[in-house]
Design a protein around this nucleic acid. Structure first.
Length: 709
DNA sequence: CTTAGGG
DNA sequence: CCCTAAG
């Protein structure tokens, strides 16, 4: 609730409020008429000039400052102040951030697309900037990554703020806006931007080259991360967190790994102002969550879990607890320690598209396509090689009734990677490790996934139109993902689960995990029972769309995790010309349900066992015991699943749907259910008359006793 | 926050 | 899965 309020405030907030809204109105007007361009141009020009000034100012002023600080400070001196206040008055900051972020995002995007032609993107100025950036970056080398990025952002932000409209455009990519205005803007911005760009070697790098400077990218993350978030975020929602976080990040070491986690933490932060860890990045989910009341409810709990986990490093209480558990379930703890699960909240594909680096796919009608359209498809491919990950499709042109669909992929992310490094490890070794890992992942093989409405489209044989991709309406719900090839996915870290994460013996351990595997495996002790089926894998993957590199570093030098490593290339501007923006906000507002995640047999097995031991009235314990690592399973979920299992067990096999659950498990379900319904109040777990079956199958009592120790 | 149930 | 009432 608090968050909501804040959010609202944010909206109403000075800069923020004005910024986003203005654009909308503009858009509306513009859309209907294409003739509006003139008017927009004028506006743009004005903006551009302002932006210029601002940029210059910032340049001079911000040149010295640090990365994060700069961002905020640079943005608006007045406004900025608030930003410094962190938690207390995040709103302003946020706004600022966003603005900046947006800009940055744009940059990266633009970078990916080389548009010599001016018309393309909504991003307008960026296109050229990109070129510049790239060049500069090359020349510059890694140079100052984070900092520069920050400055750049801030500057941009300023300009945006002043103008007001920018942010929205960029973000939303309001189609009209972009189309009409680009030319003017570009010109105006070119020079200033260029200079700036040069400064921001890091940013460029990030956008441009994945393979090469992954390490560097990581380092730069802060900036990138922010941009990410910002980009994703609907207008002003998370401003607070960002601001605060970003700072923390810079100042403090980051430990966060999961998006989800971050999210949850994030929420916490906002609510309570406690800072456990800085949140490196906030996923798209944030928005979602914020929007959804449910999430709020749920989030806290999850957070707790997360925190605890995270706290391991800190030497929190958790470790013990964990350990216990671990011992408890030998099978599972392995991974527990190592991996962090992302929370399920985020999981849904929806997030994905909303997400950060959305790429815009545009439907092109041939007619529409001007000079560049043809290339778009080709370019897309190129982008694909680049690296990984998530792309978002927007469908742009209104006209497209054609059979052709254009897609542009703005950037790829590298799959999530976990790295644990001892404090004594050198930065260089860390970099190398990251690099090696990334290289392995990329080289190992990546497959592309297509998402519609956040759901994976698994049927490769269906046509686009059959899938719904052809329809304009659906384009914005289209997403691409890069997924590590299952086979090649990095193996779990060698580290002993028992070991405190921090204590890892060797200097570096990096694990890239395919998102999915961790959850289940870790969760379900009995992998034996059912190895993750392809289905499962896929499911998980969905959640993983956003893949990021997470670096956990013990030392202060922690790398912030960022996700978007690269911006890739070249699309036709035209394709991009129309960008729908609202989708995000819309979606976020819709607060959709989590994507459905059918329980796997192994999960069911784990659930059954837990219930056998704990009974049916202790879902929290069940969760803790067997699903602690399954962030996407809440105790309510478990309870619901049990409910359905009981139901399923009672109906005839013919009536059952979905993945068949072994009859043996269903029998245990019935037995346990019967048993516990008799012993409701007594949780002691004495199995007597009713426990017969159970005993035979699992011997709940004995197990319980031993386990609990 | 957890539980328990209905939707 | 979601939502809610109740503890």
């Amino acid at each position: 609730m608090k968050l909501k309020k804040r959010l609202d405030c944010g909206h109403h907030g000075f800069y923020v409020a004005t910024i986003p809204k203005a654009p909308r109105s503009i858009r509306r007007r513009a859309q209907p008429k294409k003739t509006d361009e003139d008017g927009q141009l004028c506006a743009f020009e004005l903006l551009a000039s302002l932006a210029k000034q601002l940029l210059q100012e910032t340049e001079s002023s911000s040149a010295s400052s640090n990365a994060s600080e700069n961002d905020h400070s640079a943005i608006g001196k007045d406004a900025v102040e608030n930003g410094r206040q962190y938690e207390d008055k995040p709103v302003k900051t946020k706004c600022l951030d966003q603005g900046s972020c947006e800009v940055s995002a744009v940059f990266s995007e633009s970078a990916s697309q080389n548009c010599n032609q001016k018309c393309l993107l909504n991003e307008f100025p960026l296109a050229e900037d990109d070129d510049i950036l790239q060049r500069t970056s090359k020349s510059m080398g890694s140079g100052s990554s984070g900092k520069i990025g920050g400055d750049l952002k801030s500057e941009i932000c300023k300009s945006n703020i002043l103008k007001g409209n920018f942010p929205s455009q960029v973000k939303g990519g309001s189609p009209k806006f972009g189309e009409s205005c680009f030319n003017g803007v570009e010109n105006a911005f070119e020079q200033p931007i260029e200079t700036k760009v040069i400064e921001t070697g890091g940013l460029n790098m990030a956008t441009t080259c994945i393979s090469k400077d992954l390490t560097e990218l990581c380092m730069t993350f802060p900036a990138l991360a922010n941009s990410d978030k910002d980009v994703n975020l609907p207008s002003c929602r998370d401003p607070i967190p960002n601001a605060s976080f970003s700072r923390h990040r810079n100042d403090i070491k980051l430990g966060s790994r999961d998006d989800d986690d971050n999210l949850s933490r994030f929420n916490k932060f906002s609510n309570k102002l406690k800072v456990y860890r800085p949140v490196t990045r906030i996923g798209d989910r944030r928005i979602r969550k914020l929007l959804t009341s449910k999430y709020w409810k749920v989030a806290p709990k999850l957070k707790d879990y997360e925190h605890s986990r995270n706290s391991r490093n800190d030497g929190g209480l958790r470790p013990l607890h964990r350990k216990r558990k671990t011992c408890y379930n030998r099978e599972r703890h392995h991974r527990d320690v190592l991996y962090k699960r992302r929370k399920f909240y985020d999981r849904s594909s929806v997030e994905t598209f909303d997400g950060r680096f959305s790429c815009e796919s545009v439907t092109n009608s041939p007619e529409k396509g001007r000079s560049g359209d043809k290339s778009s498809s080709g370019s897309m491919l190129q982008a694909a090689n680049g690296a990984t990950s998530l792309v978002k499709g927007h469908h742009a042109s209104l006209r497209s009734k054609d059979s052709n669909v254009k897609f542009s992929i703005k950037s790829f992310k590298v799959p999530e990677i976990f790295i644990e490094v001892s404090e004594t490890a050198t930065v260089g070794s860390l970099k190398r490790t990251v690099m090696d890992t990334v290289t392995a992942i990329l080289g190992g093989g990546i497959r592309v996934g297509v998402l519609m409405h956040g759901k994976k489209v698994r049927d490769d044989n269906r046509t686009l139109s059959q899938t719904g991709i052809s329809s304009e309406d659906n384009l914005d719900t289209l997403g691409f993902t890069l997924e590590p090839h299952p086979v090649q996915a990095p193996s779990p870290p060698p580290v002993c689960p028992e070991d405190p994460p921090l204590v890892l013996p060797d200097a570096l351990q990096i694990v890239a995990r395919s998102p999915e595997t961790p959850a289940l495996d870790s969760e379900c002790p009995n992998a034996l029972t059912d190895p993750p089926s392809p289905t499962e894998t896929e499911t998980h993957e969905e959640s993983n769309h956003e893949q990021a590199i997470h670096a956990d570093v013990l030392t202060d030098t922690t790398l912030p995790d960022s996700r978007a490593l690269v911006a890739v290339p070249a699309m036709n501007v035209e394709a991009l010309a129309v960008v729908p923006l609202n989708q995000k906000s819309r979606r976020s507002e819709m607060a959709q349900r989590r994507t459905r995640r059918p329980f796997s047999v192994s999960e069911v097995e784990a659930l059954v066992r837990a219930v056998e031991e704990l009974g049916t009235g202790r879902w929290r314990d069940v969760k803790l015991r067997s699903f602690e690592d399954a962030d996407h399973r809440t105790y309510v979920d478990l309870k619901d699943k049990w409910k359905t299992l009981v139901h399923t067990a009672r109906i005839s096999p013919q009536q059952r749907r979905g993945e068949p659950v072994p009859q043996e498990l269903l029998d245990r379900v019935l037995a346990a259910h019967a048993y516990w319904s008799h012993h409701q109040a007594k949780q002691q777990g004495k199995h007597q008359a009713g426990a017969l079956k159970i005993e035979a199958l699992t011997d709940p009592n004995g197990a319980t006793a031993s386990n609990q120790l």
